[in-house]
Amino acid sequence: MSWLTPTMQELLLEAFWETLIMVGASTVISVAIGLPLALLLYVTAPGGLSPNGWINRPVGLLVNALRSTPFIILMVAIIPFTRLVAGTSIGTTAAIVPLALAATAFLARLFENALREVEPGVIEAARAMGATRLQIVTKVLVPEALPGLIAATTVAVVSLMSFSAMAGAIGGGGLGDLGIRFGYQRFMPEVMATVVILLILLVQGLQSFGDWLVRRLSHR
């Protein structure tokens, strides 16, 4: 364990926190923006609660465009935007912006799918009872879709972990960046292995937590 010097321990710990911050912050942001976006897509879809092609099509197009741009390209392409939002274009904070943006588009689709899984009959029943559209969304749609929304978030968080490894390209730091810089560029396979094991444990833990939450919340 000669490689695990106090400096390396510090580096690993720091990278671990950077990953957590990048993934955590971008998850919170992407859920906060992705869910309304998904609701908008769901509600305005043809045959939806308020079909509106003028909203649905452009929003769908934007989401698809963001999703089809490779993350590493998205990250550098939006540098001006990142600078505007985060005040800087390098570092952990700056990495959160492209991560959140990519995850928002990703989640918007996953959330939309989860909403579509809600049995249309339950919504029809609520309409028949005289529910307003807002009541249908807040009291039927979101509660019924909740397990699916959480499962989607878990998938997105795991993807974000992998995306965050690329944040090193703009100085974002994190475990993936550490693995590349030390494990690969400085020929320290132990560091690479440690990073990979840490990431695997993190992903496993998150997935198990997500699955547990879904099981707890659904009554099927």
């Binding site: 009959g121 029809e124 005289g130 039927v140 509660p143 397990p147 659904s218 009554h219």
Partner: peptide, 22 residues
């Protein structure tokens, strides 16, 4: 007005359409 009128009309469905989480 329609929502109010609907509250005075009960409806039962083939597939029950219950909220699974309630």
């Amino acid at each position: 007005g329609l929502r109010a009128a609907r509250r005075g009309i009960g409806m039962v469905f083939q597939h029950f359409n219950l909220h699974s989480r309630r």
